[in-house]
Amino acid sequence: MKDDNENWRSRDELDRALDAVLAKCAAAEPRVGLEDRILANLRTVEARAADRKWWNWRMVTALVVVLIVAVALAWRWNKHPPIVKQPAVPTSPASAEALRHESKSGTSGEKAMRPKVPHAVKHAAVAVNAKLDVFPSPLPLSEQEKILAIYVSQYPEHAALLAEARMEALRQQDEERRRMMAAQDSGQ
């Protein structure tokens, strides 16, 4: 009986001690101005979030502008292909002949000087070559060419005969050269 009483008494005391400790925990007081600190922190967090949102919008806007500009440029590029400057054929037949001859026997130096043209553009240039009458502007005839032009206009038959004779001579020279080359090949 006495033991039971003591047990209950000690349990009551433990209850009281337990309540005291729990009450102490429950009655913890924050430092003065907790609400103000929390509100200040919330304002900072909100301002930072708004700032981040603003920056995101700016980034998105900048990206959209860049995209629009890129698309517009690409569209314009496709619509108007670049204009290629073509060498023009001189209007007079003599200078045209001279130019054709020059283009056949073009030196490596000239090749090096020629600007590189994109592959697609080369085809376009070939197609346009037929009407070479724009650039370069025809050079004035030399003295000899002027004399030749006068002679051809005055004596066209003579000029034709001379031209044929000259062509014949050139053909013969050519054949002779070929024969010699063949003989050299067979000798080896």
């Binding site: 000690s10 349990r11 005391e13 433990l14 209850d15 001690a17 337990l18």
Partner: peptide, 12 residues
């Protein structure tokens, strides 16, 4: 909690 405290000798 009370059991544990009694085991530790508190209250007796």
């Amino acid at each position: 909690l009370k059991e544990k405290l009694l085991q530790r000798g508190h209250g007796v």
